[in-house]
């Protein structure tokens, strides 16, 4: 079957398998930041934004993206021009092996879209469904709060 969607702002009209996951589709389309982890929606490494909201792409049928927009970290920044949130992750030392990082960044981005000044507890609740294999949660919380301060200073896009 064919579906139409926007991936990181680019329109696509693609063939999908009826039971294909959104994770499989976005990786086929080149968004390799989206990681396959548990494959049952528990770990959060496959998180993408579907129509602006985070979802677990491993348990989201690709067909659900029909007519919608999908955003991955590829749309936030590039290695040459990181997004302020990505810069905050680097500065806070919130990246260890990096496997969970794209998912963490996207749930943090969603949080900061809705909450201007999240507390540490608020951040912990927001990332609670995303597992860091290195257990570096404290640095991730610091990074998100650093990014919130940058946003308040107008350093955001």
């Amino acid at each position: 079957m064919k579906i139409q969607l926007e991936l990181n702002g680019d329109p696509h009209y693609v063939d999908i398998e009826p039971g294909e996951s959104l994770l499989s589709l976005v990786r086929r389309l080149g968004a390799w930041s989206v990681r396959s982890g548990c494959d049952v929606g528990d770990c959060g490494s496959c998180t993408v934004l579907l129509n602006g909201r985070p979802v677990r792409s491993c348990i989201t049928f690709a067909a659900k993206a029909q007519g919608g927009s999908v955003t991955t970290v590829e749309a936030l920044g590039t290695p040459q021009a990181l997004h302020p949130l990505q810069e905050a992750f680097l500065e806070a030392g919130a990246v260890q092996c990096g496997y969970c990082t794209p998912g963490m960044v996207l749930v943090a981005y969603d949080l900061l879209t809705r909450v201007d000044d999240p507390s540490a507890d608020h951040v912990l609740r927001a990332i609670a469904g995303n597992l860091c294999r290195c257990t570096g949660y404290r640095k991730i919380v610091e990074a998100v709060r650093l990014a919130a301060r940058r946003k308040a200073e107008g350093r955001w896009r």
Binding site: G44, T47, R53, P54, I59, V107, D110, A128, G129, N130
Partner: peptide, 9 residues
């Protein structure tokens, strides 16, 4: 209930 990415779906 769980986390936002699951509540969204």
């Amino acid at each position: 209930f769980s986390a936002a990415p699951l509540r969204n779906m």
